[in-house]
Each structure stands twice: as C-alpha cells, then as structure tokens.
Amino acid sequence: MALPASAKPLRADTRRTVRTILEAAERVLSANPAATVEQIAEAAGVARTTVHRRFASREALISALAAWATQRFHEAVEAARPRTAPPAVALYQVTVNVLRVKTGWGFAMGALPTDAPEVAEVHADVLHQCAQLFTRLRDAGLLAPDTDLDWAQRVYYALIHEAADKAPETDAALDALATRVVDTLLHGLGAPATA
C-alpha cells in the first residue's frame, strides 16, 4: 500500500493486518460490490474498529485497494523482465503475470481511479515497457516487419481483457489461458497457408 511521504513506515504486523483486510475486501467486494465495512472486517477476521483505524471510510478502503492492485499490476509486469528477457519469454510471462493480477484483483482493478497521478504514472510506465517489448518482438522476427505496433498492442490488451473474464482456478488453467492469448496474438485465428 502506498503511503504519503510524511507517513512513518508501518510495522510488520500492521502491514500483515492491512494486507489481510485488503485481500478480504477484494473477495467480499467481488462477490458483493455493496458490501459493508462490517462484512469486510468479518471476512478479514478483524474487528470493524481495526478496519476503521487503518481506513477512515469505505471509500478510503476502496481507494487503498485500488492502489494496492495498481502496485501488484506494476510488479507483475516488472517481474517478467520485458526489457531484458528473451522477447517470447517476456511476452508469455507478462501475460501470465498480468492475468494473475487481473483475475485475482478484479474488483480493485475495476475500481482504479484513472485520474489519480500515481495510477497514471504506473500505467504510463507499463505502456512504455509494453511498447519496448513489442519493438523487441518485431526485431526478433516474432512479428512481421511491417506490423503496426500500436495496433498490435491494442489487440493484445483486448485479448488480456477478454481472457481475464475467464478467471482460471488453477495455475495450469492460467498457463493455458496465457498460452492461448500469446498464440492468438502471434499466430492469429486463421488456418495456416498451404504451400
């Protein structure tokens, strides 16, 4: 969770409590977007006063949840090493990592305040890394030399968005879904040309 520069760092036990509350909030709000703070506290196994001590209001909790998801999203892209890993490996890893965040933090990702400066900064960096990765994919011959990279990226984002609706329940299902997204991007849906 991002804290203001003036805030002192949280103790380890407090960080764990905050994470437990945020994870519970994601589960509860995904099932019922109108859920109360009391329902979230119950799911987290903490008192309502504990939630209110950490988050001044339900809106503040949702804002913190969105900030948490934004950070997970950024970390997911960074962990794939899109600037340095072999391009095909990076594309697959970015895909599986982002799908994991989008399916695991669906409510929070939908609650992202797109006008918040920290969210805009993260998204700008992710878009920049993706643009670099797509250039590397083209340079490696995985995309045609005349590929419109902006269009290819928009198609990729649409594929990710649609795939995230599938919410795979196992790592194997997530891997298969990521493979399908990458295969669709790189090879399309048409039948291979015959010689």
Rank of each mutant, 00 (worst) to 15 (best):
A76R: 09
A163W: 06
H187S: 09
V181M: 14
A7G: 02
P113M: 00
F55N: 00
T14D: 13
F55H: 03
F73L: 05
S57R: 01
F107A: 06
F73P: 01
T135N: 04
Q39K: 13
V77T: 14
N97W: 06
H128F: 13
L65T: 08
S63Y: 03
F55Y: 10
L65H: 05
G110L: 07
A178K: 12
G190C: 07
S6M: 03
Q129N: 08
L99P: 07
P82S: 11
S30E: 03
A116I: 03
P113I: 01
Q71R: 14
E118H: 04
L29R: 01
A66Y: 02
A167K: 08
T194K: 01
L137E: 06
L137H: 07
A178T: 13
L10C: 10
T114C: 04
A191T: 13
L133F: 10
L22G: 05
A80L: 11
R81G: 06
P145K: 13
A158P: 06
R100A: 09
R11F: 05
L177T: 15
A7C: 09
R54F: 08
Y157T: 09
A24D: 00
A176G: 11
R154A: 10
I21S: 03
R15H: 07
A178H: 08
V98I: 04
A69E: 05
V77S: 10
A90L: 01
A176P: 03
P117N: 03
R138W: 10
W105C: 04
A124P: 06
V122Y: 11
L143P: 13
I160E: 15
R154L: 08
R53E: 00
Q39I: 12
A80F: 10
E169C: 05
P192M: 09
T135W: 04
V126I: 15
A41N: 12
L149H: 07
A173W: 03
V126S: 02
T95K: 11
A64V: 01
V37I: 15
A56R: 11
A47G: 14
I40Y: 02
E59D: 11
A108Y: 07
A195W: 01
L174Q: 09
A56G: 04
R11S: 15
A5Y: 07
R53M: 02
Q132W: 13
D171P: 05
A140E: 08
H52Y: 14
A195I: 07
L185Y: 12
A5I: 15
A76C: 02
F107D: 00
E78W: 08
D165G: 14
T49H: 09
L127T: 02
Q132A: 14
R136I: 06
G188C: 12
F134N: 10
T14A: 14
A60W: 02
A90W: 01
R11N: 12
R180K: 13
L91I: 10
A124T: 15
H74G: 05
T84A: 11
A56L: 06
E38D: 13
L3T: 14
